[in-house]
C-alpha cells in the first residue's frame, strides 16, 4: 500500500503550464521532509519527463507514488512513441523542433538526465502506441 499517491494531467504543447506538475511534486516531497538531494533528483526526472510529454508525447498523465522504501514516478502519454529506445538514451540525440530549442530544450539530454538521476528507469514504448516511463528512487 502506498503511503501517498497523486495523479496529474499533462497537456500536449501547453508550454505556459509545462513544468507545473513537477513543481507540485517537488512541493509535496518538501512538505513530507525528504532529503533535499533526493527531492532534486525526483523533481528533475519528473520535469524532464513532463517536458518530453509536452513536446513530443501528446496528452499524458503523471503519478507520484510514495511508498515506505521508495518513490516512483509514472509518466504515460498517448503520443507517437519512441522508435529506438537505445538511441533516445544517448546524450545529444534529439527529435526536438526549432520551437523546443527556442524554449531552452531539445539538446538531447532529457532521457540521459533521467537515467543519471534515478535509481531505476523502465521504458515501455511502441511506435504509435505512446510511452510509459517508470522512474524509481530508493528511500534510505
Amino acid at each position: 500500500m502506498p503511503e501517498l499517491q497523486r495523479n496529474f494531467k499533462v497537456k500536449f504543447n501547453d508550454f505556459m503550464k509545462a513544468g507545473d506538475v513537477s513543481i507540485q511534486i517537488q512541493s509535496i516531497l518538501k512538505a513530507i521532509g525528504f532529503d533535499p538531494d533526493l527531492i532534486r533528483r525526483v523533481s528533475v526526472c519528473a520535469y524532464e519527463s513532463e517536458m518530453n510529454v509536452v513536446m513530443h508525447g501528446g496528452d499524458g498523465d503523471v503519478s507520484l507514488i510514495v511508498g515506505p522504501k521508495d518513490i516512483t514516478v509514472h509518466v504515460r502519454d498517448d503520443g507517437p512513441g519512441i522508435e529506438n529506445t537505445e538511441q533516445a538514451f544517448q546524450e545529444g540525440y534529439s527529435t526536438a523542433t526549432h520551437e523546443h530549442r527556442e524554449m531552452g530544450f531539445g539538446a538531447g539530454m532529457g532521457l540521459p538526465n533521467i537515467k543519471k538521476s534515478a535509481d531505476t528507469v523502465e521504458v515501455n514504448s511502441k511506435k504509435g502506441k505512446g510511452t510509459h516511463l517508470k522512474i524509481s528512487f530508493n528511500v534510505e
Binding site: 508550454f15 509545462a18 513544468g19 517537488q26 533535499p36 523533481s43 520535469y47 531552452g104
Partner: peptide, 15 residues
Amino acid sequence: GLNNIQVIRTSVISG
C-alpha cells in the same frame, strides 16, 4: 540569455 517562463520553472526545480 533565455527569456521565457521555463527559465523560472527550471530554476525552481534545479534549486
